[in-house]
Design a protein around this nucleic acid. Structure first.
Lengths: 110, 110
DNA sequence: AGTCTACCTATAGAATGTCAATAGGAAGTA
DNA sequence: TACTTCCTATTGACATTCTATAGGTAGACT
């Protein structure tokens, strides 16, 4: 549970969004909250970052969306993973594993 | 020791450069090789990425440079960390720690 | 001399996130 | 009804950062 939100590391936003949708469909701000939750408050993704990414990902075919009602009875666009999206989540998870291993490795070098 | 080099994760290049210079001065391609070495071959930094970064970092005051002769008796520009550069290395190392913790955290969420 | 190789530079381009402003509709209140 | 306030999504201008690519210089080798 970190106090100060950190700037996002470029290249990790898609991964976080994909992961946040892995447990079920969510609307935009729901995704944002979930990311904040699962990263222990470290990352806060604002609308201006989130929605362009969602649109990009929908074009890639990783998510699909539909209009519905939010918990508060407001209109909200829900997003969910497609099959390709689940695959992409695996791909990016493995990529993250490699990268974080390599950098941790590098930082321990003498 | 990974086989396929991964694309660099944006936002980590400075950290890798700083770290590669922590043990002593190196010229441009020397830095590139050292990064490849300490990341177990995972990251390959090409000139088009490296030199703009070096110039940026010199402007920030994190490195200083001078012309010298390379191992093969060719002219080469050597780079080394300034005091501010060492400080920056610490800052970015901590940042990396936070970020990688948060993402690993997120990926383990159910 | 001519060619090769190691090394640095310059410049433009593309991808990705950030920021700030905007808009519309539902809920709450009077 | 009218007013305000959230909630939600969109947009466009912008900054940063990495990539691609081509070129240029200087020494080494033959």
């Amino acid at each position: 549970m970190n106090s100060e939100p950190t700037t996002l590391l470029p290249g990790t936003l898609d991964l976080l969004i994909l992961k946040s949708l892995a447990t079920g469909e969510l609307h935009g701000l729901g995704i944002s909250r979930r990311i904040q939750q699962i990263t222990g408050g470290t990352f806060v993704v604002k609308p201006g970052s989130l929605f362009p990414a969602l649109h990009r990902m929908e074009e890639e075919g990783w998510t699909s969306s539909f209009w519905g009602d939010s918990e508060n009875n407001r209109r909200a666009k829900y997003y969910r993973l497609t099959k390709a999206g689940r695959k992409q989540l695996e791909v990016e998870s493995r990529r993250w594993g490699r990268i974080s291993w390599a950098i941790t490795q590098a930082l321990q070098a003498s």
